[in-house]
Design a protein around this nucleic acid. Sequence first.
DNA 1: CTTGGCACTCTCCCGCGGGGAGTGCGAACG
DNA 2: CGTTCGCACTCCCCGCGGGAGAGTGCCAAG
Lengths: 339, 339
Amino acid sequence: MLDDRKLEVLRAIVEDFVSTNEPVGSKALAERHRLGVSPATVRNDMAALEEEGYITHPHTSAGRIPTDKGYRLFVDRLSTVKPLSAAERRAIQSFLEGAVDLDDVVRRSVRLLAQLTRQVAVVQYPSLQRSAVRHLEIVHLAPARLLLVLITDTGRVEQRVLELPGELSDDDVAELRTAFGSRLHGVRLVDAPEALSDLPDAAPPGLRPVLTSVMSVVLETLVEQPEERVALAGTGNLFRQATLDPYALRPVLEALEEQVVLLKLLGEVHDPTTVHVKIGEENSVEGLRSTSVVTVGYGPEASAYGGLGVVGPTRMDYAGNMAQVRAVARYVGELLAGA
Amino acid sequence: MLDDRKLEVLRAIVEDFVSTNEPVGSKALAERHRLGVSPATVRNDMAALEEEGYITHPHTSAGRIPTDKGYRLFVDRLSTVKPLSAAERRAIQSFLEGAVDLDDVVRRSVRLLAQLTRQVAVVQYPSLQRSAVRHLEIVHLAPARLLLVLITDTGRVEQRVLELPGELSDDDVAELRTAFGSRLHGVRLVDAPEALSDLPDAAPPGLRPVLTSVMSVVLETLVEQPEERVALAGTGNLFRQATLDPYALRPVLEALEEQVVLLKLLGEVHDPTTVHVKIGEENSVEGLRSTSVVTVGYGPEASAYGGLGVVGPTRMDYAGNMAQVRAVARYVGELLAGA
DNA sequence: CTTGGCACTCTCCCGCGGGGAGTGCGAACG
DNA sequence: CGTTCGCACTCCCCGCGGGAGAGTGCCAAG
């Protein structure tokens, strides 16, 4: 059905449309891309591509534009990896190298990504779930109230105040501290339940009931309700694209304000080596059906710390954005692994 | 120069223009507002108002619209306090009552404000500076590394990791803990330097040098570089206003992404009882020259915890927004004071 | 299968001409 | 002197029509 030349035509259409934002016609296409065939032939191919649903035209007598399906094919089979320019590499390096703490890393990288791609950028803080415990501090605020401070290997510091069912003495708390500390140190939060499983049996009988209750609260607050955070930047870039008519932007902005939505975008990403692309209608989030989302995980190979990516019009430079997103993710991953 | 009727005309123009978004003409105005005078008279008054710079018309033969100066006069002298509707009161109450912690309070109130005013809402986290210390915990992470965890009376929990010039023993840290704890408990951060001033002298001589260095680091990180945070919501509301042409929105969105800018907007606010309004060109922030900003402080009377407010088109319902902003601020203030 | 030719279809843009809202001003009125 | 009436005038807005141009679809020939 789709021979090589037709695919080539599709690629040309996507590339031209992305760069000019105007429906592309057969004549201009044949000229600009040295296909070695006449406009008439191109027209035939276009008709075939349209038949298959890869392109459309806005009105009877206008050029063609890619459909979501067309972009999908382009991304899957046609786009060649676009190496970063030297300037881009330098930008990434200089932008990120001065970062002092985790917050700073995230803030810088989200801005960097927005600037680099000229899209809306999203960066997830390293997931607590997949981070390992570097230090767990238990502070005795009041007889029946504890403060938990968790420091992860990625530099996240998270705290929770716990209300206990019964009162504790300072000595009890000291016991708790060592009991939890020794078992959790270096353990990833997802593995915490297992690491703690022997705790009740190992504890002195007197402390056992309160300890089990503390333990369940700890697990509940740290593992089951982990506070995921995301940073966002570059929303103004949405206007750069004349593609989206301004009033269509409202639902997009509204969607981007929802933490839940952003986490959903990034949440499915686990593999830090492959870049994921959701195109237009493929997006499960209602408000983002007119956009495309490019995401990737970051962190050490096997288990990603979290995800990052960009949101932009379906008419975007997929090859470029994918390369940029991947590059930033790699840098951020290294930066955090080294910390 | 401006007799009562002229002011009345100005008020009518502002009100009509705000609600219809169309330049208002003399005839429609005389009819709708029962001024008891003919359109011709209104025209004379309009000419006078225009002479003084309170209104303009887009083209020779169109109705009048208020200028920034006109809105200013309206806000200062003409707008009557608009009591909240019962529905609004209920909304505020039900929206905020389920809040569990500080983050939750802030997130809920910023959304509430955005929804209520249909503008972009901004809420500052209670300023560290003006909060009092409820608890200061010092954790000995490594020989030369401390973790400071600060809990304020407004429920903020802030932490910093300190690298020390020299090493400490656990006993030293315990000393530090009590020394700082006893002096800072209940003290506002702005007053911290004073509260700590006797510390070097009171300390055992051996600990003195390290203690002074810790102290300076503590003061520096907590007082001089306090981390201020703000929450933002309702950016999509910018589109609701046909007033601002969509492409003019980009600088606005860009400005709103800058934490610094938001803090600047709210930073000047100290008095929780008076609502501040910046109209159009009055704004010192470049990107917000086409918008108006309504802000107020929240917290106990004398020293506000922080500020909150909304950003919208100059063509906004000032009376309504001012009332809503104030009401939310009052609720949030009470909520935090009670916590 | 490819190509050239050709008629056809739309959009886009421009200029034109009411219709209408609103103004500004001069004159009359209390 | 402030208010009102009447009236001419100014522009914007909107719909209409027509020409130009881009691009298509199709047919017949290579």
